[in-house]
Design a protein around this nucleic acid. Sequence first.
DNA 1: CGTGGCTACTTGCATTTTGCAAGCATGGTC
DNA 2: GACCATGCTTGCAAAATGCAAGTAGCCACG
Lengths: 93, 93
Amino acid sequence: MSDLAAALDIVGARWALLIVERLLDGPQRYGDLQRDLGVPTNMLATRLRELEAAGVLFRLPLRHNTRAYALTDRGLALREAIVALGTWGKNDA
Amino acid sequence: MSDLAAALDIVGARWALLIVERLLDGPQRYGDLQRDLGVPTNMLATRLRELEAAGVLFRLPLRHNTRAYALTDRGLALREAIVALGTWGKNDA
DNA sequence: CGTGGCTACTTGCATTTTGCAAGCATGGTC
DNA sequence: GACCATGCTTGCAAAATGCAAGTAGCCACG
């Protein structure tokens, strides 16, 4: 399995990279991600579980029954790839 | 729609980036892609059609009833993003 | 203490995407 | 003109995704 295939195995699923991109701006709560991205709630829950299991992000407990999701170092390391893809997507001429 | 979402709309589908990565090494024929990637034949045909429509690659007629698939400039511009993702995927420690 | 509201999910089911296997078309070879 | 390689298409099963509704924990307020 190539390196690219290994990467896509983790962040290649739908919504995964968009979630990580959103978290590059700092920790976000579940509802924030849902509203900002327009992702279905069951998909969001699934992806957050998978990305946590893959060591890309972790749950950060806040007060009450709320928590935030934040990137690990491994998650932050995706910034370069995300920026590169975003730059490519910008030039759709 | 963010730039990243626009990019993923084109190359976010399963197998798409792997196909492009393979073509970074130069034009490839259908059967080569199929064997190298292990992608189901109907998916390969679908993706090649989509990527051609998106201006990422084009069909290059060879002799007989064979053709090759090659990247356009827009397709080649994905190299940076693919390398970045591959580098990330390599460090799965 | 109990009702109501907010947040973070889970669950059930329809729709879409993906995958497997088999078949078809075209062109060349002998 | 029988045979083979290449490049697909087609039919159907399995899996992923999406929508809508429901559940669970916590706290504020009366």
